[in-house]
Design a binder for these strands. Structure first.
Lengths: 187, 187
DNA sequence: TCGTTGAGTCAACACCCGTGGAGTGGAGAG
DNA sequence: CTCTCCACTCCACGGGTGTTGACTCAACGA
């Protein structure tokens, strides 16, 4: 194994460990030392690669934004697509799950996470959604759609409310989809 | 002013300062020193009155739960009542707003805040809601209703998404109420 | 083979935080 | 007026954190 390859591999291990701990314990409660420990590396190396704890978190958040892929959809498909994206992002792929949780967990307490959440996830993605919704209230309806999705995601994957975690995908679709359709298409 | 009265007044000032800072900066970023400073008091006094930073936060969270008053409602009134409670709790009364924000801001990163949110706010309140909804999916529907409300609250008052903050109460009612009715009454 | 480069380590610094214990001064009781 | 009590303060400790600079050693190029 070449030196450069080895370096990229440890850098990726550090980032993965950081994402996991940011996702589980939040920004403030994860320490550079514990991330380095989980990655099997000296704390100073984390600093050398990422510059600071803040920039390490920034890299983690950027990873999430880079790897979010929202499927395009017509107005009728929008609610089902949104729900499918949630399931895919939070249940199917492991690293995407950790990265998304890391962003969501900290978006209420960490300034840059809040910024990413507001600007990249909500505003930017919602602009596209608003375009496919159309009409006067398009931005508001897109915002409400996103807000409801965030609320359900938080309740199911972060707070782990029994009523939500105990539901299957089909349960959620049955209860949630008619409501979301009412949001995107009031007619 | 009697001595006991003076004591209760400074204790209340400390609690209010704590609620404001917990609400704005989160648990980890607020320090006993800064709370004491805002209350015009020595940091040691905060410890003497509340025991620890953890218990200070617990008192703040308990205040929220004690002062939440969910209006009872029939199934038809449920969505409108939920929305009205949100407006009342987050816009009308100053201290209730700060207290509710303090709980909500930290419910993803602070264990005891998450516990209060899950057990007292979601589960307990939702049990009552599920009772008035009735039917097979009652718990799930109550959970989804609560999750959507939390999502909208977070988007509007914590993340401050423009599409949500720019909407009037009537706008929100017009967009959200039909969807919530679809949740509580699928027929 | 030998010097160089760079991945990775080690020990320590400086800072800030929560917390504890001794001390102070003014209000209340007699 | 005097003694007592208690709200309140001062100061310092111990621990944990992010961060740094000097160091080690194996891989690479000539």
């Amino acid at each position: 194994m070449t030196r450069e390859e080895r370096r990229r591999r440890t850098e990726a291990a550090i980032l993965l460990a950081a994402q996991e701990q940011f996702a589980e314990q939040g920004f403030e409660r994860t320490t550079i030392r514990s991330v380095a420990g989980q990655a099997g590396v000296d704390p100073a190396l984390v600093m050398q690669y990422f510059g600071s704890k803040e920039q390490l978190f920034g890299a983690s958040a950027r990873w999430t934004v880079d790897h979010k892929m929202l499927g395009s959809a017509t107005r009728e498909e929008l609610p089902a697509t949104a729900l499918a994206d949630m399931f895919e992002g939070f249940e199917d792929d492991v690293q995407r799950r950790e990265a998304a949780l890391a962003l969501l967990r900290n978006c209420l307490t960490h300034p840059s996470a809040a910024g990413v959440m507001r600007d990249d996830v909500m505003c930017e993605a919602q602009a596209a959604v608003a375009g496919t919704i159309g009409g006067d209230d398009a931005e508001l309806r897109a915002g409400v759609l996103g807000a409801c999705m965030i609320g359900v995601t938080i309740a199911r994957y972060l707070l782990e409310i029994p009523a939500l975690t105990g539901a299957t995908r089909e349960d959620l679709e049955r209860v949630l989809l008619p409501a979301l359709r009412q949001v995107v298409d009031p007619g």
